[in-house]
Amino acid sequence: MTGPHDLTELQLDALRELGNVGSGHAATSLSTMLGVPVKMEVPAVGLSDVSQIGDLLGGREAMVRAVYLLVSGELEGHMALIMREAEALRLLAALMPERLSNQKSDELAESALAEIGNILTSAYVGALTRWTGLDLRPSPPLTAHDQAGAILDSLTAELQLAGRTVLTLEGRLEVPSVPGCGILLLFLPPPASLPRMLGALGLDALQ
């Protein structure tokens, strides 16, 4: 049996392709919601140890916005979307400048970013559903806003993920006239679920 640590190149390619397709859906959904063209580049899809993820976000002290949801159904897994706060707020300011200028801007930013996170994660779950044919249901998203180290440690502790390998997708949201906004999508299938997912993708027996 192939473990998460020793995926074949072919299986990794399939996950990359899944990430690309999901990102395409995610960008389209976001574009529809915001009424502006949105593109998503996916420079990297890979596997990381949970403890290494802070490095992808710029260190433990980096301020981030995070959305977490539980995927359940025929396959279970944890999904989290993390954006660096400065980039996320810059994106938001460009998308809805008039709404962010009043005194309620903090709450608005919070809920707008939560909604963006919700749309993006739903799109990835949708892509996974279509690709695998498995019945998957995302839970309502939970949001957090704090230092990257604190958020990642809390997820690791609360979900008992220490020492586990995570599927990571580093994406970049591109909107006209704004510098891109990096996103980090984490997907953590329980050990028993990854082979199942690869199996549903037709890759279980391929080496």
């Binding site: 995070a66 977490y68 939970l142 949001t143 957090a144 604190a150 809390s154 502790a157 609360e158």
Partner: peptide, 18 residues
């Protein structure tokens, strides 16, 4: 021992248990 995600995990949360 703070709570980063409201609603994540069972009961009082891992921070309180720590």
């Amino acid at each position: 021992g703070s709570r980063m995600f409201r609603g994540l995990g069972a009961g009082a949360g891992i921070g309180r248990r720590n």
